[in-house]
Design a protein around this nucleic acid. Structure first.
Lengths: 363, 363
DNA sequence: CTGTTAGCGCTTTCAT
DNA sequence: ATGAAAGCGCTAACAG
């Protein structure tokens, strides 16, 4: 019995009563650690030690192993590695419905940072339904070392992604409110529109409209709140809030409403850049001039805004950095460099004035 | 000895000489198949059979197992499953540098289809360097059942992603040219600009410029070629080709050149939509009217084009469908429903006329 | 129908 | 310094 075992270890591919199983395995995937060991004339343990630099190995054998591995094009089976309880090397990313440039920028920040730190991305996009989020999270289970979750609608406790993996929330409500033990990275939604509105006020605008984002989106709520706070004390007819959304068509529709208002606003703070572009389109369509008759300011700072016509004033969010911070923090936690943080890290936004808005006081 | 083994199977958590190892395991991840078996009072094999519906099991035990699994919140360890040689459930997606709406649309198509078919996405974006692509591919090795690769610059044989996994190329050069054994899904780059240019010609334009995409991008080359073919026979000064790119700034810069041309083109076929928006911006900036003085047609059909000002005429690519077809085909191959195809599947594009272009013949 | 067992490929003690 | 062996959690023969 012990003789047979010995045979198994040192000559795994030798003829056996049943050649079938062996063959099946080699059909599936190529080179295993045993093939390398065999070729180098050492034990699989030594191969492992060399490849992981996990213990000192005789110089000659080391070279032998490295050569054999290279010759064979050996790549360790990640499934086997993670089965042993080691890292999977994956970071799961749970996103809402992705559309527009915001997400491609975010993805860029996430992926380039993940790459830099030696991780790969597992991505799942979901729509508003809770089950979709949970299904996405479940699919990640055991395949990732940590999670980045961006859920503008559902709060972490509603999502109930109670995975053991460390999780960083991005622009997700709930976490900001308090120390539920969640950690989130956000940007200043409220302050953004507050500043934009304040600027317009100082620039001499009296009647300013806000086109708000989608219902139940926490960030849309915050942006509306920022607008309201800046307009605090002004009569209601001077600060109308119009239903809108995050897409151009919704901004376009809102512009119709705004163009017909009495008194007509001389400025609009839009929910985001696409919405703002739609508003501009709708305003122009209604025969108004932007910024001649109406100033428009967006939110996000998407690249298109620099070249739309007129170029778009906006509250710029450093999206790329948002992604980078999320991954970097997550990896720090995964690797034990720091304890899982809680609370919120806020990334500041900045008002960028371009051609779609103008001052009424300094002509 | 056999008694001990029996014990191990039926009471894995019982006290053992060394309690350490057990504890370590439970630290890492929660519930295993043995916990479920223990709770249901059956063997792990039965649990597996119930959960995978892989063999008939006594009704009562079935319920017992299902209850136990649900109570414990059991999720099979994917690493263990794939180690057995079963599917990983992953689809690897290798993309170039992502920016703009094209990629968020593509991602949408890929992810929603993958979800529908029970797969998740592993994403890696790369820039132009070959090593980055290969590193991305290597990271996917063993973690995915198949690959979707979109490489507008490097051909499949240059990429040398010689993985055993079935691979579908999207909008990637090389495969189109011949049966190298690769399969690719593309759209009609050449035909797209050809049609757009033909339309402009028929609409009475004589001098038409093309702002081409990035150097060495195969799709940019094809689009230029489509333009040239449509303009075949026309004198060179009537069909200038200007350096450009896929971003607005490059279109903007190209517009400056075009505005200064003698004779000045009355129409521009741009490399893509963002480029076209930049061209429009630059043209307006130079005091020209669009489409009054110059008509502009883009390529891709990004959502913004519907609401830019003027709304953008474009060659619309069904990006979402592109992603869907890629994943669907790949999964068909993975699941053995069809043999790995070769050659190209072309997805047709369509000319969509909006306000940025006008006819000179029917006023 | 159901339990036992042999691995999947790898890392990590444990003995040399 | 290095080989043997014990599993990680799971599925798929192989016996009952």
């Amino acid at each position: 019995m012990s003789a047979r075992k010995k045979t198994r270890t040192s000559r795994p591919t030798a003829t056996r009563p049943d050649g079938r199983r062996r063959k099946r395995a080699s059909e599936r995937r190529g080179v295993t650690i045993r093939d390398v060991a065999l070729r180098a004339g050492v034990s699989i343990a030594t191969v492992s030690r060399v490849l992981n630099r996990t213990a000192p190995v005789d110089e000659r054998k080391r070279v032998l192993v490295e050569t054999a591995a290279a010759d064979l094009g050996y790549i360790p089976n990640p499934a086997a590695q993670s089965l042993l309880g080691r890292r999977t090397g994956g970071i799961g990313v749970l996103l809402p419905y992705v559309s527009g440039e915001f997400y491609s920028e975010l993805l860029n920040g996430l992926d380039s940072t993940a790459k830099e730190l030696g991780y790969f991305l597992l991505i799942s996009t979901s729509h508003d339904r809770l089950e979709e989020w949970q299904a996405g999270a479940r699919a990640m289970f055991g395949r990732v070392d940590g999670l980045v979750v961006m859920s503008p609608i559902l709060t972490p406790d509603r999502l109930e992604i109670r995975s053991d993996e460390p999780t960083v929330y991005v622009n997700t409500p709930g976490a900001p409110d308090g120390a539920n033990g969640f950690f989130s990275i956000g940007f200043s939604n409220l302050e953004g529109t507050f500043e934009a509105t304040r600027y317009l006020l100082e620039a001499g605008h009296r009647t300013i409209a806000h086109v708000r984002g989608p219902v139940a989106h926490a960030d849309a709520d915050l942006r509306e709140e920022g607008f309201r706070r800046a307009m605090a004390g002004h009569p209601a007819e001077e600060c109308p809030v119009v239903e809108g959304g995050y897409h151009q068509e919704e901004g376009f529709a809102a512009a119709r409403v705004i163009a017909a208002m009495q008194p007509r606003p001389t400025a609009v703070v839009a929910a985001n850049d696409y919405c703002a572009m739609g508003v501009i389109s709708g305003l122009l369509d209604a025969g108004l001039d932007v910024p001649g008759d109406v100033s428009v300011i967006g939110f996000d700072g998407v690249p298109s805004g620099r070249y739309s016509h007129p170029t778009l004033s906006t509250v710029e969010v450093p999206v790329r950095r948002l992604g980078e911070r999320a991954v970097r923090t997550l990896v720090d936690v995964i690797q034990g460099h720091r304890a899982p943080p809680t609370g919120v890290e806020m990334i500041p936004v900045s008002l960028v004035l371009r051609a779609s808005s103008r001052s009424l006081v300094e002509p």
